[in-house]
């Protein structure tokens, strides 16, 4: 069974009395261990798709099975639980808590899964080591470079052993050199640790790192290509 199984997903928002349809029937399956890039011009609906995939939002209609369980009709609290257990997020703007050390930022998902404080710290240290930041665990986000902040965010995404990592324009705020480093880190997580990675980007050269590229145009899947190795 596929890790992510979408069937005929529609999403529309009410706008001036009309329903504006953003997603017009997306059917998609993503297997465990894939590295997928979702591409599309702005307004294509790729962010909406990403929000639904990431369990931040629910579809208007259609079914979504995540890891074998239906999630399309869950309450906000049930979705929070799924996000906590199954999904790690990496955002364009890093979204770290300010005035909070790298270590504590990485501990955050475990705070909400009620992991004891000691185990929390050990696992956070391990995750920071995995992204190459063991030297800067006690630095605040404003004492770190953009690339380092994004690494902290990645450590936060992997620390709860979530099978899926969603990365929304993860290199959008970084220069080329740092972008390459971050994409190499994703590749490593995918190949060495078997994490499923779903990447949203509009940059072709970033999408090249993925093994499968899905293009969204006007709320529908325009193309779905697997890279042959």
């Amino acid at each position: 069974m596929a890790l992510i199984d979408l069937k005929d997903i529609h999403k529309s928002y009410p706008l001036d009395g009309f329903d504006l349809e953003i997603l017009k029937g997306i059917t998609l399956q993503i297997e465990k261990g894939e590295f997928v890039a979702i591409m599309g011009p702005s307004g294509s609906g790729k962010s909406t798709l990403m929000n639904i995939l990431g369990c931040l939002d629910t579809p208007t209609s259609g079914s979504y099975f995540l890891d074998g369980a239906p999630v399309q009709n869950l309450t906000p609290d049930e979705l929070a639980e799924i996000r906590n257990q199954k999904i790690g997020f990496v955002f364009q703007g890093f979204n770290l808590l300010s005035r909070t050390s790298a270590l504590e930022n990485v501990e955050l998902p475990m705070v909400y899964s009620n992991t004891p404080a000691k185990a929390r710290q050990e696992r956070a240290e391990k995750a920071l080591k995995a992204v190459g930041l063991s030297e800067r665990m006690h630095h605040m986000p404003n004492q770190l470079s953009g690339g380092q902040q994004q690494r902290v965010a990645i450590a936060r995404a992997i620390v709860n052993d979530a099978p899926i990592i969603f990365a929304d324009e993860p290199t959008g705020n970084l220069d080329t050199k740092m972008s390459i480093e971050i994409m190499q880190l994703f590749t490593e997580l995918n190949e060495r640790m078997g994490r499923t990675i779903i990447l949203v980007t509009h940059e072709e050269d970033i999408a090249l790192y993925a093994k499968r590229v899905i293009k969204i145009v006007d709320g529908e899947i325009h193309s779905d290509e697997r890279k042959k190795k």
Binding site: G54, L56, P76, D77, A80, E81, R83, N84, Q85, F89, N95, L96, L97, S98, L108, P109, Y112, S113, R156, N160
Partner: peptide, 16 residues
């Protein structure tokens, strides 16, 4: 608001 958003995305429930 942003901090709340981050916490929610990471798995904070409404009661948290």
């Amino acid at each position: 608001t942003r901090e709340i958003g981050i916490r929610m995305a990471i798995g904070a429930k409404s009661w948290d």
